[in-house]
Design a protein around this nucleic acid. Structure first.
Lengths: 358, 358
DNA sequence: TCCGATTTGTTCGTATGTATG
DNA sequence: GCATACATACGAACAAATCGG
C-alpha cells in the first residue's frame, strides 16, 4: 500500500496489509473494518480494487461482510490440519496402543487424526490412498500393507511426494521407496530370542514366520542368523511360512503335524505373540506342556503375552512410544523441521515363563 | 440465464448454469470453457459479471483458469465428508472394538473418521468440541464424559444443533439434552447379574459402582432393584462408590478392607470387568479364592473377562455391533433419512466360572 | 414511521497488462 | 508479430440493507 515500486497487484498489497493487521491483533474479532469507500480514497484506489482485496480475505475466512452494516473481522478460524493414519488393523493386538500414542500427541498439537485400516488388503490400501490424495490431507502416517510383496501401490506414494504431502511409514517400509520410516529392529529381535533359547541349551528350534510383510522376512533372517552363529544348519522342515490369508489355520496345523513326528523340536520361535498362542494351543492339544516339554517365544509384547497362564517370553515392541514418536516426527515433517526421519528401535528381550533350561 | 423474471443476481444464474453443465458431465475434466468475452456477448452480460461467476466457480473448485490459455473444467473433487468420533478412551477395554465397528461402516460408505479421546476429562471434551465447531465436521459420534455430573459443556451441544451438525451419543446421554443416543440397558444388566447371584443362593452381596457417569448410576440402580425384589434391604456398608479419579486405588482398597471385617460378603457385583479384576486381585491377596470363597460378576464382556484363569461371568456389551449401528445411524442422520434415533440394547448375561452356588 | 446517510451488493463500461499459441 | 484469453485497474450508477434521528 505504501510501496510504489512493489510489483504485486494493488489488491494483493491491500489484502496482505489488512491480513497483517488482523493477525497482529490490531483488528479484533467482530471489529468493524474501514468502509470500502474510505479505504479506496485513503489509498487512492478504485472501490472495485478494494472490493477485490476484501473478497479474497472473506474467502480465506479473515473477514465477513454484512450488507448495509459493514465489513467485520472474523473470529480466528482455527483451521486444524488433518493427519491421516492408515494401519493394517486398529482394534487388535498392539495397534490400539500405537494409535493411542499417535492420538495423544496429535491431539495436543491441535491436529485432527483421520483413521482408517486396510485389513492387510492392498486393494483397501489403494482405495484409502486415493481418497487421501483427492482430499485435504496434510500428512500421512502409514503402516504398509504386505510390505514384502511387490509394491503395487507405489504410484500413490509417488503422487504423495509430487503433491508435497509428507508421509511416514511405521513397522515396515517398501525397499523400492525412499521414504521416512520408524521401525523396530526385527532381525535383532528374533536374533535375541533365538540366542536366548540357544543359551538355554536348545538346539532343535522350530520357527514360524509370516512371509508377506517385511517384518516377517526380517524376523526369519534374525532366526537363521542366530542359528548360524551357533553352527546349526538351516533345517527347512523346522520352519513354517505363511501369509495373511493362511493365518487362521496354517500355524496351528504346522505345529501339530510337527509334534507328531520324532524328533520333536524343543523350542519354537514365533513371528508374534498371536501365533505363539496358536502354537501354545497346538502343544496343549498334543498333550504337552509349555515350558516343560517345549519352550516358546513370542514377539511384540502384546497384551496377549500376559493374558494366559503361561506368560510369554517375548520381544518388546515400542507400541505407544512408537506412536508418539511417529506423531512428533510427522508434525516436524509438516512444519519443515526435519526432512525424512528414519529410526530403528533396538530390540529388547522380555524374559517370562515360557522357556526353560534343558 | 434464460429467465428474465429470475430475481437472483445474473452472476449467480450464470454460475449455476455452468455448474450444472459440469455436474451433468456436459463439460468433461480438462475441457475448455467458452471464453469470458464470448460468454459475455452470448448472454448479454458485461465481462465483469461473467468474471464474477467464474471466480466463484474457481473458488468452489469446479474450474481453474490459466492466463492466456483459457478456463478449464477441474477434475471432480471428491470432497469426502468427515465424521468425528469422540470417546472417553480409545486404546483400552471395549473401545477398540467400538471404534473398529464405526470405522468399518464409515470407511465403506466413503466417510472420513476423525478420532479423538477425552481421557474422561470434561476440559478435554470442551476443547475437542470447540475444535469441531470451528472446523468442517459434518457429524459427530460422542460418548459423553462424566455423564452423571452436571453437563458443563451443554452450550457446545446447543451450538451443534444450531449449526445443523447431527450428533449421536453412545453408551450414555445427558438427561438435560434431547439428543439421539445408542445405549445398552445398564439397569437391566446389573439386575440380571444380581438376580443370577441371588438365584445361586447369595444374600450378602457387595456392589462397586462408578458415580460420575450415567452408566454407573444406572448399574447401581439395577443392583438395588434386584435386591429389593428379593426383599433384601440396602446396606450401604456393602456398596462402594468411586469416581474416575479414584479408580486406581479405591476399588481395591474398598474390597480389601471389606474382606477384613466379618461377616464377609459372598459375592461382589462390579461396575465393569476392569474393576472385577481389581476385586479379583484383592480377594487373592486376602488369601481367598474365586469362586470358592467369593463370587464376582463383571460387566461389558471385555477381553479382560476371559484373559485370566478365572473366566468372568459378565454382561454382554454390543461393542463392534454398537459401533456399526452408530455409524449407520449417523450416516442416516446426515443424509436426512432419520431424525433422532434412540435405541437401547437389551442386556444379556454371560455365565462363565466366576460365580458358584452356595 | 419515514427519511436520509452510510455501507455493501450488483451491473454496466473502458483501458491496459501479460501470457499463450 | 498478432490474435486470443485471462488479469489488473479505473469509473459510474443503482439496488438493498442498516441505522440514527
Amino acid at each position: 500500500m505504501f510501496d510504489p515500486n512493489n510489483s504485486a497487484p494493488k489488491y494483493h498489497q491491500l489484502r496482505e496489509y489488512l491480513k497483517e493487521q488482523i493477525i497482529r491483533g490490531d483488528l479484533l474479532p467482530g471489529e468493524k473494518l474501514t468502509s470500502e469507500n474510505t479505504l479506496a480514497s485513503q489509498f487512492n484506489l478504485s472501490r472495485h480494487t478494494v472490493r477485490q482485496a476484501l473478497g479474497e480475505l472473506e474467502n480465506e475466512g479473515y473477514i465477513y461482510r454484512e450488507k448495509g452494516r459493514g465489513t467485520f473481522c472474523s473470529r480466528p478460524k482455527i483451521n486444524a490440519q488433518s493427519i491421516a493414519v492408515l494401519t493394517t488393523y486398529i482394534s487388535d493386538y498392539i495397534f490400539p496402543s500405537i494409535i493411542r500414542g499417535i492420538e495423544e500427541i496429535l491431539s495436543a498439537a491441535g491436529y485432527n487424526l483421520i483413521l482408517a485400516n486396510t485389513n492387510n488388503d492392498k486393494a483397501k490400501e489403494a482405495l484409502c490412498l486415493e481418497n487421501y490424495l483427492s482430499q485435504k490431507i496434510d500428512a500421512l502416517i502409514i503402516e504398509p500393507t504386505k510390505s514384502a510383496l511387490e509394491n503395487s501401490n507405489i504410484n500413490y506414494y509417488h503422487l504423495l511426494e509430487v503433491k508435497g504431502i509428507p508421509y511416514l511409514m511405521i513397522n515396515a517400509f517398501y525397499p523400492d521407496l525412499d521414504s521416512a520410516y520408524l521401525i523396530m529392529d526385527d532381525t535383532q529381535g528374533t536374533y535375541l530370542a533365538t540366542h536366548h533359547l540357544l543359551q538355554l541349551g536348545h538346539r532343535r528350534i522350530a520357527g514360524l514366520f509370516k512371509t508377506d510383510d517385511l517384518q516377517g522376512v526380517k524376523r526369519q533372517a534374525g532366526f537363521f542368523s542366530a542359528l548360524k552363529d551357533y553352527g546349526i544348519p538351516e533345517n527347512s522342515a523346522l520352519v513354517g511360512q505363511y501369509t495373511t490369508e493362511q493365518i487362521r489355520s496354517y500355524p496351528y496345523q504346522f505345529i501339530r503335524s510337527m509334534l507328531q513326528k520324532e524328533p520333536r523340536p524343543t523350542a519354537v520361535v514365533c513371528y508374534n505373540d498371536q501365533i505363539a498362542l496358536d502354537v501354545l494351543e497346538a502343544i496343549r492339544n498334543e498333550g504337552l506342556k509349555v515350558p516343560d516339554d517345549i519352550s516358546i517365544v513370542g514377539y511384540d509384547d502384546s497384551p496377549l503375552a500376559t493374558a494366559t497362564e503361561i506368560k510369554l517370553t517375548t520381544i518388546r515392541h515400542p507400541k505407544a512410544k512408537m506412536g508418539r514418536q511417529a506423531a512428533y516426527n510427522i508434525v516436524d515433517m509438516l512444519t519443515g523441521h526435519i526432512e525424512k526421519p528414519r529410526f530403528v528401535y533396538p530390540s529388547e528381550l522380555i524374559i517370562r515363563s515360557s522357556c526353560r533350561n534343558i
